[in-house]
Design a protein around this nucleic acid. Sequence first.
DNA 1: ACCCGCATGTAAGTCGTTACATGATTCT
DNA 2: AGAATCATGTAACGACTTACATGCGGGT
Lengths: 200, 200
Amino acid sequence: MTTLGYAILGLLAQEALSGYDLTQRMKGRVGNFWSAGHSQIYPELSRLEAGGHVTHSVVAQQDRPDKKVYEITTRGLEALKEWVTEPPTPRAPRDELVLKAYCVWLADPEKSARLFREEELRHEDQLARYKKTRKWMEGEHGEEVVRPDSPWFAGYAALRRGIIYERGYAEWCRWVADSIEGKLDSPTKREKKKGKKKSA
Amino acid sequence: MTTLGYAILGLLAQEALSGYDLTQRMKGRVGNFWSAGHSQIYPELSRLEAGGHVTHSVVAQQDRPDKKVYEITTRGLEALKEWVTEPPTPRAPRDELVLKAYCVWLADPEKSARLFREEELRHEDQLARYKKTRKWMEGEHGEEVVRPDSPWFAGYAALRRGIIYERGYAEWCRWVADSIEGKLDSPTKREKKKGKKKSA
DNA sequence: ACCCGCATGTAAGTCGTTACATGATTCT
DNA sequence: AGAATCATGTAACGACTTACATGCGGGT
């Protein structure tokens, strides 16, 4: 089984969905840490069905095309439960911007400062969106959000990862941009002053 | 040109290296945000040479097999400089552990708490290693580290991203594990108490 | 008439991992 | 003699992206 397969099972464990629905989910909430296009999802659903992890039933609609609604099977649920607590194989995260940072000494300071400034904004925007969702979750589902056996807790936990990630990313971009623009104290200077610090 | 191509050019911009050397670099410092095996590197070097971005010369060694040492060309350096300040195409980060967190409501609390506890340690270990490197860099290359046109600054910047990333990751793992073990206040409780807070 | 959203698929191509394959030299 | 490090490649496979392909129904 592939990770994508478990991602799909994880969604179907909460509710029955069509391939199209799954594609939408992969662009939204879940897509923030695992995304996939429909061209990957449809074949994967076939494989999952062949393995007995899901079943589908055709649902007719009057004002829209028919759809295949997929449900998770007992076997699928068992496989998913086992997978959840197994340690993931550690994979080095790939980040193109960090790679660019690694080469930034070659570049024009103005252009590179602008780049990191823009990225800072992008991640602060995403952070703001996440925070809004968190507020909403805490308001609408305050009780479920703290119960580890609730799907709301799980979604809340994933959301918190997003918040921490984006906060850290924005902070780093800001530091890089500030450094290029010469707005920060050097570590050696800091040691001598021991005053209030601007950087993390 | 692929991102891997630029990663290689980025390394060659600092010093001439063989395919083998590049492979070692991709496991070490650079490998923390962009990794590749030798089976990817050798063909990519051929492509870079075909495109006129690098050249190689065979260097004979007495106590070891001969090697091909690659140098970046003017053309390669220009391409690299252009690439550095171009905004990267935003790609959703893929994280299997977050996906597992999203399904954690199905799992046995003891097992899942253990999983997140272990991951917390892994990331704290990595964080400690990064911090040690940072200390060393600040001590040995304190002057270069603050100059945006120095390769040391670039390496230092990449390192700082690693530190922020691992710190955030460990913090999140700790929060998830604590939550599963019921060690934390809920957001609703927090609102009523307004006392000292345990969570971020 | 045309575009958009719903709905489902296939095909081609790229990127990356794992495995296969070879050969020199040094250390134990 | 065998293992480890240095050194360079190819082949097979799997995962992911982008493009191709089709069809209905509703809105402008």
